[in-house]
Simulated scan of single mutants.
Amino acid sequence: MTTAAPAPAPATGVGPLLRGWRERRRLSQLELALRADSSARHISFVETGRSRPSEEMILKLADHLDVPMRDRNGLLLAAGYAPRYAETTLDDPSMSALREGIARLLEGYEPYPALVVDAAYNVVAANRGIMALLDGVPEHLLTAPLNAMRLALHPEGLASRLLNYREWRAHLLHQMERQIALARYEPLRAVYDEVAAYPAPEGADAFDRTVEPEPYAHFALPMVVEHGGQVLSFVSSIATFNTPMDVTVAELAIETLLPADPATAKYLRTLAS
């Protein structure tokens, strides 16, 4: 069974937390100091608790350490400051412009599949292209909260129709491993542990051997899936919001599935019509 790296022991106080992020990014105190226009001595004092950093200094260090927005709030709280970033639910009235923008984007991408997920790959929005791909997936996998990784890798989900199952599974698990290494987010680790333990769907070894080489070179690893007797090939693109000021928005990702061959594009247009 594939396993992600174990979570580090929790640190207390802003100093040890910052040291943990610095070590995770594999930076020396001097390297961080140079990036943050500080000194290695001051960074050392902050990490050992001999100096209490200002709110601005914490945010500057967090920026250079690429600390996720959720954890930046945690650093501020550990230092005795108020959180800087709100965490607003998507159904809040203040998020109406965001919801409408996402809906227009997903609709505009049809008939090609597109969806929006949060930091644990829970689906918060999807278009009709995605729902068409999920046709035939058992109802128990389609109940809330819908999770993209569960749908992709569960032996009763898309995994049973993925013709390059082992390749695509390895790609998705590696993607989650990288995210777990960059951010300490336990809900994502729980999803990883669950889907990594799924057994392969029946016939998975045969799937990979039956995919015929395409007459052209792929520019990215495709997801090859059977749908209604047709072999479809997609490449995935993921986009996030620039300069978010809210934890919820910072953790959203828009994934679009681009047809990797003309036959897939034609089939999706026919299916939509």
Rank of each mutant, 00 (worst) to 15 (best):
Thr3Ile: 11
Thr3Val: 14
Ala9Ile: 07
Ala9Trp: 00
Gly13Asn: 07
Leu18Lys: 03
Arg19Phe: 06
Ser28Asn: 11
Gln29Tyr: 11
Leu32Lys: 06
Ala33Gln: 12
Leu34Phe: 07
Ser38Gln: 07
Ser39Tyr: 13
Ala40Phe: 13
Ala40Arg: 15
Ala40Gly: 15
Arg41Val: 13
Phe45Asn: 12
Glu47Trp: 12
Gly49Tyr: 09
Pro53Lys: 00
Leu59Trp: 02
Leu65Met: 10
Ala79Val: 06
Gly80Tyr: 02
Pro83Thr: 07
Pro83Lys: 01
Thr88Ala: 13
Ser94Arg: 15
Leu98Arg: 04
Arg99Met: 08
Glu100Asp: 15
Ala103Pro: 01
Arg104Asp: 15
Gly108Thr: 07
Pro111Asn: 12
Tyr112Asn: 13
Tyr112Phe: 15
Leu115Val: 12
Asp118Cys: 08
Ala120Cys: 07
Asn122Pro: 03
Asn127Tyr: 11
Pro138Glu: 04
His140Phe: 14
Leu142Tyr: 02
Thr143His: 11
Asn147Trp: 08
Ala148His: 09
Met149Ala: 15
Met149Asn: 04
Arg150Ile: 05
Leu151Pro: 04
Leu151His: 05
Leu153Ile: 09
His154Leu: 06
Pro155Asp: 10
Leu158Gln: 14
Ala159Glu: 05
Ser160Gly: 02
Leu162Pro: 05
Asn164Lys: 09
Asn164Gly: 08
Tyr165Gly: 06
Leu172Trp: 03
His174Cys: 07
Pro187Ile: 14
Val191Ile: 15
Glu194Leu: 15
Glu194Ile: 09
Pro201Phe: 06
Ala204His: 09
Ala204Gly: 11
Ala206Leu: 13
Val211Arg: 15
His218Gly: 01
Phe219Cys: 01
Pro222Asp: 12
Met223Trp: 00
Val224Leu: 01
Val224Pro: 01
Glu226Ala: 14
Gly229Asp: 03
Gln230Leu: 09
Val231Met: 06
Leu232Ala: 12
Leu232Cys: 15
Ser237Trp: 02
Asn242Pro: 09
Met245Trp: 00
Asp246Asn: 11
Val247Lys: 01
Thr248Phe: 04
Leu252Asn: 10
Ala253Glu: 10
Ile254Asp: 03
Glu255Gln: 13
Ala260Ile: 06
Ala260Pro: 10
Asp261His: 02
Thr270Phe: 05
Ala272Lys: 09
